[in-house]
Design a protein around this nucleic acid. Sequence first.
DNA 1: TAATCGTGGCA
DNA 2: TTGCCAAGATT
Length: 352
Amino acid sequence: MIPSATELLAWYDRHRRVLPWRAGPGEARDPYRVWLSEVMLQQTTVAAVAPRYARFLARFPTIEALAAADWAEVAEEWAGLGYYARARNLHACARAVAAAGRFPNDREGLAALPGIGPYTASAVAAIAFDEAVVPVDGNVERVTARLRAVEDPLPGAKPRLTAIAARFMEDPAARARPGDFAQALFDLGATICTPRSPACGLCPWRDACDARRAGIAETLPRKAPRRARPLRHGAHFLLRDAAGRLLLRRRPEKGLLGGMLELPGTPWRDAPWPEAEALPHAPLPAPWRLLPGIARHGFTHFELEMVLYAAALPPRAVGPAGEWIAPADAARALPSVMRRLLALAPGESAPR
DNA sequence: TAATCGTGGCA
DNA sequence: TTGCCAAGATT
């Protein structure tokens, strides 16, 4: 049975989620806002994005404002959201668009920009420009895998699921409203066709769903098993000057936490750091004292345990490389892993 | 193709 | 506590 775009859109018109980045029915869509929301939502939950989207937009209301900003401002605004290459690409993308004088208005032009891959190019093209394409995110993978009972595991099954999704646009009802159709699929995946305990009885496509008929909906899509995450260790240094400011430094542009601020520290390695091995990595010689406690943080592919040494800037010390930042500003500008470390120091942490 | 790249919430 | 998961992109 062929799923009906008409029925999905009718369901969407009644049950669509109200989200800060969504234009109301008939309301004009701002490509900048659509693009910003799509980048923020990459691998990030709606709940986490909502307040950060509003804050980002208040600080950078237009793509020109974003293009004109310094990287340090953008980094501070993105701190805590994770996947920091998104922020670097966002900034580079804004500058490219501002220089070109216009936002690309089709999928192909969008896909040529930094940080815009197959999904985001299709999503912006569909939602902002009503191009007849179907963006394939995790929701659409799940919906299509179940609809056609695709039992091949991801990511290998991705091309097949993409082909299934593309055929949705053969329905004239979908072609009439590509942006709404894409968002209807997102909402279906987020509220009905959920990863666990899907609400098949409420699904507008229940009669067309092969996995439901076979009784295997909840087991799809299948995924290749993940590898275990190793445990790594680091030691970091909290240095205060006479004014109570903290010494931070900026990480290299590429790689983990690229371009973000951090507390100076050792590399992160498999073995813990005995004091004698850690102290040579301090920003300067000082009577460092080990603070009680261990900060633990989970990254995508490894776990990290960190200890923190603290000291005051010795009188007449030669200024170490880095930036002196007031504690409140530091807490705002640091990525979460560094905030966790800061929480080991009494009085230095602050709510984001 | 497979690894890298964050974070917070939830079962 | 641990593993899974979220509107993926890049190399």
